[in-house]
């Protein structure tokens, strides 16, 4: 399990990365290496050129603007976990990250690497879906910004084209106070989720749903928002009936299966975890109101 030969490049600036990407068609970008390196050790991936982003300091940052939380693609997962702004503005991100791998992998793993790899179970991809993320993609000479639905193309597949690099991920921040929940089922702590459900919501003064977002990952090839439910839920009083309705909507997502996990079980988990997540987010919102 040793990687095949490649030519190694370790540029220090974004411009140099983009130039190398333009020059070498058969190349891969190496971010934290927590997914790419195993695939290279197995020789599932054998790029002719490996472009290491670890010296590109300008890709590592967290910026909190009025409406967004922007992450440079090389921001390490551990750095995000420990960032005071994220902890304050986006506590669900901290909860989600506690499920991402283990301390040694979070120390190297980056948000850009995880999202470029786009594993359907990855917690950070779920977070991107939940927060209507925008993705800044750069190539030599130009840049474009895509919304989540344009970015997510399928199983392990994004809109990133050859010669292009994911440069920044912008999450749309919710103004506090809001309720949130992240419910995940994985076989063991730190494993990729079989299913994860995240919820953000606010309630009106009378306790009805004001705004709501629900993202379900691990079930379909890409994380899914329950858009239909989200629209219909506005103005409704949260309770058993509404949680059940959300659960049924989640269960309607067409599920994948693999050697270990059936589509039926994924569907089932989407259903029960959605119920739990919505219930928990409502409770959290209410407990905030009281304080």
């Amino acid at each position: 399990m040793k990687p095949a030969r490649f030519t190694y490049h370790d540029p220090a600036a974004i411009a140099d990365v983009l130039a190398l990407l333009a020059e070498h068609e058969d190349s891969r970008l190496l971010a934290g290496g927590q997914s790419l390196m195993p695939m290279m050790n197995f020789r599932f991936v054998q790029p002719a050129h490996l472009i290491d982003l670890n010296r590109v300091a300008e890709l590592g940052y967290i910026r909190a603007d009025a409406g967004t939380l922007a992450f440079g693609a090389m921001t390490r997962q551990r750095q995000i976990q420990r960032d005071a702004n994220v902890q304050q503005a986006c506590p669900i991100m901290i909860e989600a990250l506690s499920h991402v791998g283990h301390r040694q992998t979070r120390a190297r793993g980056t948000i850009g690497g995880s999202i470029s790899h786009f594993d359907p179970s990855a917690e950070l991809c779920n977070m991107a879906a939940l927060h209507d993320a925008q993705f800044v993609l750069a190539r030599k000479g130009n840049q474009r910004t895509l919304g989540f639905d344009q970015f997510a193309r399928g199983y392990l597949t994004t809109a990133i084209e050859p010669g292009e690099m994911l440069q920044e991920i912008r999450l749309q921040r919710w103004a506090k106070p809001y309720g949130f929940a992240f419910e995940e089922f994985a076989m063991r702590h730190g494993d990729f989720a079989i299913c994860a459900v995240s919820v953000l919501l606010t309630l009106t003064g009378s306790g009805a749903i004001d705004a709501i977002a629900i993202a379900v990952s691990g079930v379909a090839p890409t994380p899914q928002r329950l858009r239909g439910f989200e629209a219909a839920a506005r103005g409704q009083m949260p309770g058993h009936a509404l949680c059940r309705e959300a659960a049924l909507q989640a269960a309607a997502i067409e599920a994948m299966s693999d050697a270990y996990t059936t589509a039926a079980y994924r569907t089932h988990l989407a259903r029960v975890l959605t119920y739990r997540a919505l219930e928990k987010a409502v409770a959290r919102f209410k407990s905030q109101d009281m304080t």
């Binding site: 076989m187 039926a264 119920y275």
Partner: peptide
């Protein structure tokens, strides 16, 4: 015995509150 198998064996009971 795996969680998936337990849910299969439980059938509708595993739907719980949903």
């Amino acid at each position: 015995i795996t969680p998936q198998r337990i849910v299969e064996l439980l059938g509708d009971a595993a739907l719980g509150r949903t």
